[in-house]
Amino acid sequence: MRLALTGIACGALALPAPAFADLPAPVRAMIDAAIETGEEAKVRTVIELARATNPEDGAEIDAILAAYETQLAVAAEAEAAAEQERIRTAGLFENWSGKGELGAFRSTGNASNTGITAGLSLTREGIRWRHKLSGRADYQETDGVVTREQFLAVYEPNWKINDRLYAYGLAQYERDRFQGFSARYSVSGGLGYDVLLDEPVTLSIKAGPAWRRTEFVDGGSRSDLAGLAALDFDWQLLDTVSFTQDASAFVQSGSSTFISDSGLVAKVAGDLSLRLSYTVEHDTDPPAGAVKTDTLSRVTIIYDF
């Protein structure tokens, strides 16, 4: 582990080292040089070597290590406080991270064709609030005729109740004329829980009531109360390869919707990755003329920022 001691930690926050008269000067100089590098692993290695070669000075070496660990703790606290202050004072357009996708798809179901796909997802992490914005578009034309046109936009704010539990809100817009609707609006709110937080495996689940309004291509519309359940699973298989699984279900009277998106992501270079994904969307009671199940295979290049 490398922890760079800032000027604050090394200066104003550094604790005065006790004077040691018996420890040989070259040994003390070696320890001081290791501390100067700011590399914790190197410091601990040098101190262990000093202890092994100067066993009679073990108490003094232990005192040096204790003083060094105190400096590390003070520096870490200062760094954490500075990070929290940076987050609290960040402007509306600051502290966002995300990724963009661009590639091709192959679909089966209500339309069988190949086209282009693009997506964008943004996340803003705060002390208590987390905001997620995402959007996706799939589009294809054949001889000037649109054969696939699917759009999705989602906004999800989270309020962190504790390290794992959070309350969520959700506003979602969809458009897919080949599934029989010109617009579908979904609103939901409920609770989420981060079941697994530590890599290589993370898992988050959420559930709550929802309201959906569907506007059909034939001009009709309907509104329904529903229940939403969803999960987000990520598994870092290797340093450069990960598996992702997202699933959601809107359960309601009439047509319920179940979606599963499985992906394999491989780092290519720097912030660029290649993603292969397979999505299945099933509507239990689609409009007349539409089939129940659509599948979509995507190959995309991802840019992380």
Rank of each mutant, 00 (worst) to 15 (best):
E56Y: 07
K160W: 06
A104T: 14
L133N: 08
I259G: 08
E69L: 07
Y166R: 04
I87W: 04
K292M: 14
P24M: 08
R148L: 12
L23R: 06
G103R: 04
Q179R: 15
N110D: 00
L120K: 03
E125R: 13
V241T: 15
R124F: 00
A73G: 11
S297N: 14
A266F: 11
I301H: 06
H282S: 09
N158Y: 12
I116V: 10
A171S: 08
T114A: 13
G58S: 14
Q150K: 14
S186L: 13
S107L: 03
E48N: 13
V291L: 13
T257C: 02
A137R: 10
R212V: 15
Y155D: 01
S204A: 15
L13E: 03
D194Y: 06
R164Y: 08
V146M: 10
S223I: 02
N110R: 04
I47V: 15
N113T: 15
A25N: 06
G58D: 12
Q252L: 11
E69F: 01
Y303P: 09
V74I: 15
S277L: 11
D163P: 03
G100L: 04
S204Y: 01
P209M: 03
A52H: 09
C10R: 14
A288L: 13
T70M: 13
L133C: 07
E48L: 12
G109Q: 03
R28H: 10
Y168C: 00
F305Q: 07
S242I: 01
E156M: 11
G38D: 03
V27K: 06
V74S: 11
D138A: 08
S260M: 07
S260A: 11
G7Q: 05
V145Q: 12
Y166E: 03
E85V: 06
R213A: 01
L170D: 04
S107G: 05
D138T: 08
K160Y: 04
V268M: 04
H282V: 06
S260W: 06
L276P: 00
R184D: 01
A41G: 05
E40V: 15
E156L: 07
L191H: 04
I205N: 00
E156G: 02
G115A: 01
W211T: 09
Q71E: 10
N162L: 09
V74M: 14
A52V: 06
L5H: 04
E69N: 12
E48D: 15
P26A: 00
T279I: 11
S248T: 08
L5P: 00
L122G: 02
L274N: 09
L102W: 00
A76Y: 09
R175D: 11
P200V: 05
D294I: 00
R148A: 12
T147D: 15
Q150P: 07
G98V: 02
D283W: 11
Y278V: 10
L237G: 09
S182R: 14
K99Q: 10
R2L: 08
D32E: 06
E149S: 15
R177Y: 04
E83C: 00
F105A: 02
E83Q: 11
G91M: 05
G38S: 05
A52I: 04
V46R: 00
Q84P: 05
D304C: 10
L272G: 10
T214W: 06
S242L: 05
I205C: 01
Y193F: 13
A183F: 01
Q140S: 15
V201P: 03
K160S: 13
T214F: 02
A67Q: 12
S260K: 05
L238H: 07
R2V: 12
